[in-house]
Structures are given as C-alpha cells and as structure tokens.
Design a protein around this nucleic acid. Structure first.
Lengths: 265, 265
DNA sequence: CGTGCTGTTGAGGACGATCAATGACGGTGG
DNA sequence: CCACCGTCATTGATCGTCCTCAACAGCACG
C-alpha cells in the first residue's frame, strides 16, 4: 500500500503506470458530472492503492468499522448479504471505478451492513474519510457527485427488485446478463464474456443454481450464449436484449448538472 | 398553497396550527441527526403547504420535471412504478415526515423515474429547490442529512429485495406488516391498524392478490390479525414479528453524527 | 339502487425448488 | 505424469408454492 503520486501532471496525462490504474475512477467521476482538473486531482491524489484481492476474498466485511472509502480499480465484485437461511443475496455488482462502500460513509457506526466480495481477482484503492471530508469541503460539488453515485446504486437496486419480483426466469437471467454487458462496455470492455459463475447469477437473480443452468440451456438453444465450457459468453446481444426487454437507462446518470453548479460553487 | 410563517418562534414552540402540520418533518430531520434551532428553522421555514391529496391520486408523476422537493405531512403514500406488463411494483411506503422525491433532487433531468401516489388521503408540503440549495449552502450538514435520508431508503429497498427474493409468502407479508407497524410507531401511531389494501400489499410483496388473501386467512387463523371486514389490524405484534423474523434495524439511522460535524461545520 | 372497488373462494396448472447423482475442469502434490 | 480434490456445471425426477382464470359477495359511493 502506497500513496499515489500524480506529480504535477493532470489526470489524463498521468504517467502510464499510474494512469492505467486510476483511470476507471476518473472515468466514473466524469460520468457523474465531476469535471475539471483541480477537482479531479484533489480526490484522485488521495487514493491509496491496496494490493490485489484474490477471487472469493472479502473486500469489505459486514462489521467493518469504516474509516475509508473503497474504490474498485480492477475486477468484478459484488455487494451482498448472507441470510440466516444461509442463502446469499447479491444486491449489486461492482465494476472498475465503482465505489464499494459509499453507503457507509454517510451512515457510519458499525451496524451490520451488506458486505463486498471479489467475484474475480480484484484490485482496489482506498480514500481515507478524512481526506474525503477535506476534498468535499474544498469542492462542494463533490458531495453532490458522490450522492449521485449512491442514487445510481439505488436505481440499479430498484431494477433488481423488478427483475426478481416480476420477471420470469429466462427474462430475468437475460436482464442480468444485459446489465453486465452494458456496464462492461461503459468501462471500455467490448467482449461478450461475463466473468461470473452460474452461482453468482443465481444469487443475484433469486433462482436456484439448477434452474439457472436450465435457463442457460435455453439461451444456448436460442443462440444467445456460447456453448463453450465454463466461461459465459454472449454471442448475440440484440437477441438477448429483446428477450430481456432491456432498457439501459437505469444505469446511467443524466449528464445535466445540478443547481449546485450555480448556487454552491 | 401558502407560505408557512413560523414567526420568531422555534420549531418546538410553534403555534399549534402550524406546529401540528410540520411536526412530522421536524421529527424526521431530528432522527436523521439534524438538530439545532437555526438549522431546523432555516429549512422548515421554506415549506409551502399544498392542499390535501385524495387517496389514489398521484403526488409525483413519472415524468414531472422536478423543481421542488415534496414532503409527506399526513397520510400514507408509496413509491412505485408501473411496468409494461401492467403490473405495479411498490418500492417503498412513505409516512409523514418522509421525503417523497429526494432521489430526483440529485438526479435532475426528466428521466422516467418511479412515481409517488397517495394510498390514503394525504397532505404534502414542498420546498423549492432554490430554497433547498440555499439552505444547504448555509448549513452544509444538511446535505449530509438528506443524503442519509436517501441511504435509509436504499436500506429499505434492500430489505424489500430480500423479502421478495427469499422469503415465502407468509413470512413476506408478515414482514411487510411489521415494517408498517414499526414505521407508524416511529411517528407516534400506536394502533395496530395498517391503512393499506390487500392490493397494495400484493404489489409490494410481488404476490398475486389472491395469494395475499390466502395468506391473510392464515394470519387470522394464527390470531395475528383481526378478522374484521376491510381494515387490516394487527392484534398480536409479537407473534407477527416472530413469523416475519423481523429485525427493525434497517429502518433506523444510527444516531452517531458524521465526520462532517468536525470537519465541515 | 346500481356501479365500483375490494375481498373471498374454488379448481387447475405452471414455474421453479429440492434432492440426488454425475460429469467436467483446473489446480495441487506426489 | 498421474492421482486427487474442490469447484462449478449438468441432468433427471418429484414436489410444492404460487399463479391464473373465473365467479361471487360485501361494502361504500354517488
């Protein structure tokens, strides 16, 4: 774990080594409406890189007392909770640039909260709350931007509820796959591979693994996903989106900036 | 619609007429960790009372361009969405003091968003975004407080997802009822009456009305709810909570204040 | 005194869960 | 290189929860 040094360089022109690592975060902040070199640097400056977290490992525990914000920089993780019954419910997936535990920043106090776990090998960065506090103090718009980030999560969560509550299995799984593809594309990954297991999808869809598998057979028969071994690969996005009745709007934040731009800057 | 005048009086000592109306909001802000006369007055001052909204009426439309924040002052409302299939999914219930459309404040731009509808006769108040912006500017902690309010909504939403995704019907309905009782108690209503229809519960639980009805029969046989006609009344809370496996923690915000108290005041 | 909305009841059927094996793959250590 | 093990995927059979359709009853409203 070491402090990132951006030097005098700007985000976009960072030295390749650092730039590559933190780019997802910059991209994310941008998509949330946080532009401007000074502001960006102010926050990105404070990111401490933590080692990589192997697949299956916990990134944020349920009872951790939060002292810093976690940002996913590479890999795929999930927000989840394990119920008394032993079932795991996945609330959300995280991709590079996503904040893993923003919900704890405003809540504080170690109430049992959902945890975050690596679904593939991940690498993460952290920002101490103290640094975050100071950054917000300096650039008030940052509070709005982070708030917006949590509202995007809410939006995803609502969609997840619809998915689980209303859609039949085939549509449900398709929808989930569509979401993954869309989010990966948003961070520059064009491939149709979804690096999750059927188990992960089951826990997100609220279906049994067995049934997920049967749905996969159907999707293969429909020529939507590849029949190859382990890895899930979508080979026909259009068809998939049709089946899923997918509307990606819930995943993106409208570009318009808030009143805060006028009144609070 | 008229501007509330608190005069020189403080929140707690307002003239009965006004005090009664705005008390739920004050209570809510308090529970979110927003104390202090000046701060409270600053915001409450700006509330404009709107007439009462009859049961069934829409309070916030799906495509409304938001210009003001809506606060529920009396009655019960819900956040919902109507799907292509015609099904209604209820995401959350609102009780007096709750903000109905805080999610729009940070999102802006008229994307289709969930709407809010009155489930009983309601009365609401509004705060213009401009006033809200100014209040936040003056008392920075207010941004945190409102952010926290949205995070509480998220918490409820996660619980709703668990409910729909993992719990069998009897437990599911019981859980929903427990939540209503708990939230009503939090605003000072001790009665066991839940002023919702079976239809409302069905749309929140993701179950058919028919099945909800059957679950109700069971709950009556178990002596948990009254057998009387229309109104739903819980007569044995303990039993209900047992059945539901209810843990109310997701509904309340830990009292602890944020770092912002130190760094941003 | 109809007309709606909500609640109630019955019958039949579908979707998905559960249980129980088996297969395939990848990594590990001998 | 092979044997072993754990994880993940696959398949079959059975069962149960909940849905759908359909009809009717009750209360509340104008």
């Amino acid at each position: 774990m070491w402090q990132v040094n951006l030097g005098a360089s700007m985000a976009g022109s960072m030295k390749p080594a650092d730039a590559g690592v933190l780019n997802p975060l910059l991209r994310k902040l941008n998509s949330l409406g946080f532009h401007g070199e000074a502001e960006l640097r102010c926050l990105v400056h404070k990111v401490k890189l933590r080692g990589s977290t192997p697949k299956g490992e916990e990134i944020v525990g349920a009872d951790d007392t939060p002292r810093r914000l976690t940002v996913l920089l590479a890999g795929v993780a999930c927000l989840y909770e394990t119920l008394e019954s032993g079932e795991r419910q996945i609330y959300d997936f995280y991709y590079p640039g996503d904040f893993c535990d923003l919900h704890r920043y405003v809540k504080l106090e170690a109430v049992a909260e959902p945890a975050v776990r690596a679904l593939t090998d991940c690498s993460i960065g952290t920002i101490d709350y103290r640094d975050l506090d100071r950054a917000i103090e300096r650039h008030r718009k940052l509070a709005l931007v982070l708030w917006r980030a949590t509202m995007l999560d809410s939006s995803t969560l609502r969609e997840r509820l619809i998915n689980v509550s209303q859609r039949p299995a085939l549509e449900r799984v398709s929808h989930l796959l569509c979401e993954q593809l869309h989010r990966r594309r948003a961070i520059g990954i064009e491939s149709g591979v979804v690096p999750l297991t059927q188990i992960d999808l089951a826990d997100a869809a609220g279906l049994s693994v067995v049934h997920i598998n049967r749905v996969f057979q159907d999707l293969r028969k429909l020529g939507v996903i590849s029949a190859s071994g382990r890895t899930i690969e979508v080979v026909n996005r259009e068809r998939l989106a049709e089946i899923a009745n997918f509307d990606s709007r819930y995943l993106t934040m409208p570009a318009a900036l808030s009143n805060w731009d006028i009144s609070a800057e």
